[in-house]
Design a protein around this nucleic acid. Structure first.
Length: 849
RNA sequence: GCGAAAGUGGCGGAACUGGCAGACGCGCCGGACUUAGGAUCCGGUAGCCGUGAGGCUUUGGGGGUUCGACUCCCCCCUUUCGCACCA
């Protein structure tokens, strides 16, 4: 008998897996494919338990699917470009590449010591030229299709990180990475036209029925589709050529539009400010002092000033004043809105503050016309139109259609759809990213780099100052280049791409990671795609997951794949907390997996993290819980170790070919019930915690069985030990063998090293994958006798034991005859007897009165 | 403010489509084994009443539907997350 010593076992199997290239795969049409992926890692240094939980979840799924006969692609890689590497360079002088590669080496070791079954030959790092070359390739394709374009625009600027941020990267007005309040800058920037796919991304979300509803809702809100109309207000007097176009979703309230509001950034405001600088600079001054993010999030009070100009409401044909208001956003819609104080709360507050008239033009279908002034709030619901000339009496829906039609006929407006989603700004003024492959030539203007010149490599030497322009701009040998068109002198673009570009298609590259001709072979992606199971943190609900859906469609449109959606099923795993807080170096509460492996082994660590809570939920780290999992594994080890001599031999007859007694049959039933339960919990449910508890129950049952049948030494007195003999009954040997083997196989996705070791101890030459998932036999799982609970007036009063094939009449008679039940029904009238449930859960419910 | 999810023993959590609430584990209590055990094996463990058989109460609170509700419906409370002037 040997004690359970995880460290030695784990090392042994990790070496074997590596030497046998056990998890490498190729396309194989004989097996169904399964693409299992965890979000790849940013190589920040050391992975803590919170990071590796995700890889453990994916590994259980991958290993289980392999055993169930799937050809499983389970790759891993590194999201290796990004700011922390560059910041480390500024701080310590280490080159970003050195820093990144060292971190990758360390973290790879950590993952290998946890025993994650990756196809390491497919490993990729986005900072390598053979990867980012294809970022540049896609960029050029996007340029050709007008998906990539450059424009000067007002952009989000993080003063700490000294770079531009995409809208998706600004959280509550602050930088997603460092939390600094974001400011604005006017810059020439490259954009990806993700808005072209807005409708498709929205519609596609409807079909993602294996994604968490929460993530889909967040994406829908982010895309923010609004159906409405654009409508032109002419300027008064004279209604000269130029007017003000507004966007509204409530054209049904047009007769209540008593003013027009312009964003301070609106071009007309800028023009008028030139004509009348005194008046406008006075008004605009207070907005300039206001924080942009505070303005965006509505923290500042609604304020405005009168331009002194008027516009004509195109339906009432009356002049209305034009005001500038701080709550109107320049970048949404047309930067101008119509003010309907009776039916829009913001406009109402504005009107009240500046004493502008309020008109009611909608009344409730079954009520009076509400008076917003009396109400103290705008009546924002739909209803029936009043005070609206020829449109009086129409419902809001109907009126919107009619008014939009009328506006179109008159050439002053049209129905339109507006999105909150904006094009994705991808220029970053940083070094450690993919160079944008374009040049600026004095005679040819902007010229894309030629495909054959890719990759445009990052120069090795760069100065890391942390200044607000790209470090590449200070490397003359990079900047100065020849124009690909005319051969004259040209300057290279010195901005690099947002690192979210890298992660938007890496899952496709994994299908063909060493392809030197193309980003990937379309046939390989056709075989492996889409990702069947994708897991990662919910913090990527919008950023990475919407960009990836966008990129997949771009690859589709350039003919590289027929996929629309990249990820079939998404699991967002919960975080690991320690002392109630997220693990972080600064809080000093990180748990390093290597420390836990040194104490309890990787298998116990994996088992604990999988068992303590469902994968989606956050968990609170406890050493005691980990120890409990270790105890369970040691318990499995002991029983298998002790039984291995008896059940590990050759030529043992199976349980179908020997006579079984009641106890043996019961153990067999429990074994098959467990197979059914654990299988379902893993696939398709991914309820990993209950799968583990199912295995624990089976182990408890095995101990009880062995205790009774005296075939186990553990826990006995010295005297008793002597009486523990050789197991004589062939039935006992047969059911124990079946049960223990099923246990070891089902445990193997969770505790792969120990399971392989035990499997070998049981006399098997080939590993657990070759053995396959244990088969479930419904005949064996079926109970011969069942215990049926009996309720009287809804309270549990007794249980009757009957044959599994009992008829309803027999069951009713047995229930009524039960002495416990009798006590509660005696002398009362039986009103009703309900026999409920199918074969799985039966119950008798008696109603007396 | 709007939207979503969730509230179950001392703790983490189970209960698949309305059918035996508290599986499994942690912790705690007891027993066995033992020179000893923080090892191991066995047992107990929601609360209250009762020596016991058993009874009553119990899934955030209140109401409802049903033979039967952790599960469905309505109201309220709490927590977490997301959105937050998008016209």
């Amino acid at each position: 008998m040997a004690d359970y010593k995880p460290q030695a076992i784990e090392k042994k199997w990790q070496e074997r897996w590596r030497d046998a290239r056990a998890f490498e795969v190729t396309e194989d049409s004989a097996k169904p494919k399964f693409y299992c992926l965890e979000m790849f890692a940013y190589p920040s240094g050391h992975a803590h338990v919170g990071h590796v939980r995700n890889y453990m979840i994916g590994d259980v799924v991958a290993r289980m699917k392999r055993m169930r006969g799937f050809n499983v692609l389970h790759p891993f890689g590194w999201d290796a470009f990004g700011l922390p590497a560059e910041n480390a360079a500024i701080k310590s002088g280490t080159h970003p590449e050195t820093w990144t590669l060292e971190n990758i080496a360390h973290m790879k070791g950590q993952l290998q010591r946890i025993g994650i079954s990756y196809a390491w030959e497919r490993e990729l790092a986005t900072c390598m030229p053979d990867y980012y070359k294809w970022n540049q390739w896609v960029f050029l394709k996007m340029l050709e299709r007008d998906i990539a374009y450059k424009r000067r625009s007002s952009v989000n600027w993080c003063p700490t990180d000294q770079t531009v941020l995409a809208n998706e990267q600004v959280i509550n007005g602050a930088c997603w990475r460092c939390g600094t309040t974001v400011t604005t800058r006017e810059l020439e920037q490259w954009f990806f036209r993700i808005t072209r796919y807005a409708d498709e991304l929205l519609a596609g979300a409807e079909r993602l029925d294996q994604w968490p509803e929460k993530v889909l809702t967040m994406q829908r809100n982010w895309i923010g589709r609004s159906q409405g109309a654009r409508l032109k207000f002419d300027l008064a007097p004279g209604g000269s050529g130029q007017g003000i176009e507004v966007f509204t979703t409530r054209i049904d309230t047009i007769y209540g539009a008593n003013f027009v509001l312009l964003a301070p950034e609106h071009s007309l405001v800028q023009a008028w400010a030139k004509e009348d600088p005194e008046h406008f600079s006075e008004g605009l001054k207070k907005f300039q002092a206001q924080d942009r993010s505070a303005r965006m999030t509505g923290e500042v009070e609604k304020e405005g000033f009168d331009t002194g100009r008027h516009a004509i409401n195109p339906f009432t044909e009356r002049p209305v004043p034009i005001w500038v208001a701080n709550f109107v956003l320049g970048e949404y819609g047309t930067g101008a809105v119509m003010g309907v104080p009776g039916h829009d709360q913001r406009d109402f507050e504005f009107a009240r503050k500046y004493k502008l008239p309020v008109t009611t033009v909608i009344r409730a279908v079954d009520g009076e016309a509400p008076d917003a002034s009396a109400l103290g709030a705008a009546a924002e619901s739909d209803g029936l139109l009043v005070n609206s000339g020829p449109y009086d009496g129409l419902g809001s829906d109907n009126a919107r259609a009619k008014l939009t039609d009328e506006a179109r006929h008159r050439g002053i407006g049209e129905g339109t759809v507006q999105y909150r989603l904006k094009d994705w700004g991808i220029s970053r003024q940083r070094y450690w990213g993919t160079p944008i492959p374009v040049l600026y030539c004095d005679s040819c203007g902007m010229v894309p780099e030629k495909y054959e010149n890719l990759p445009v490599e990052l120069p090795k030497i760069a100065e890391f100052s942390g200044r607000g322009d790209s470090p590449l701009a200070h490397v003359p040998e990079f900047v100065n280049a020849k124009c690909p068109k005319c051969g004259g002198s040209a300057r290279r673009e010195t901005d690099t791409m947002d690192t979210f570009v890298d992660s938007s298609w890496y899952f496709l590259r994994f299908c063909d990671p060493h392809n030197a001709q193309l980003p990937f072979d379309p046939e390989k992606v056709a075989y492996w795609g889409p990702v069947d199971f994708y897991s990662g943190g919910v913090e990527h609900a919008i950023l990475h997951l919407i960009y990836s859906r966008f990129f997949t469609r771009v690859f589709r449109d350039i003919g590289m794949t027929s996929l629309d959606e990249p990820f079939e099923r998404l699991l967002t795993q919960g975080m690991v907390l320690n002392s109630g807080q997220v693990m972080s170096k600064s809080k000093g509460n990180v748990v390093d997996p290597d420390d836990m492996i040194a104490r309890y082994g990787a298998d116990a660590l994996r088992l604990y993290v999988m068992f303590v809570a469902p994968p989606e939920k956050e968990i609170e780290w406890t050493d005691a819980g980990l120890e409990g999992s270790w105890r369970f594994l040691a318990r499995v080890w002991r029983i298998v170790d002790q039984l291995s001599e008896t059940i590990g031999g050759e030529g043992i007859p199976g349980p179908d070919s020997v006579v079984l007694n009641d106890e043996e049959r019961a153990l067999r039933r429990k074994t098959h019930e467990t197979i059914r339960r654990v299988t379902q919990d893993l696939d398709p449910r991914v309820h990993l915690n209950t799968a583990v508890s199912g295995l624990m129950e089976l182990v408890n049952e095995l101990y009880a069985f062995c205790g009774q049948s005296r075939c186990l030494v553990v826990g006995r007195t010295a005297d008793e030990e002597a009486s523990v003999g050789v197991i004589e009954r062939p039935g006992t040997v047969a059911v124990l063998k079946e049960s223990v083997e099923a246990l070891v196989l089902m445990l193997s996705p969770f505790a792969p090293h120990m399971a392989e070791e035990l499997w070998e101890m049981l006399g098997h030459k080939e590993g657990v994958v070759a053995a396959g998932w244990p088969p479930f036999n419904p005949e064996v799982a079926k109970a011969q006798e069942i215990t049926v609970p009996v309720q009287v007036n809804g309270k549990l009063r007794g249980r009757v034991v009957v044959g599994a094939e009992v008829s309803e009449e027999e069951l009713r008679a047995a229930a009524l005859a039960d002495p416990q039940v009798q006590k509660h029904i005696q002398g009362k009238t039986i009103r009703k007897v309900v026999i409920a449930g199918g074969s799985a859960s039966r119950l008798v419910s008696i109603v007396v009165g």
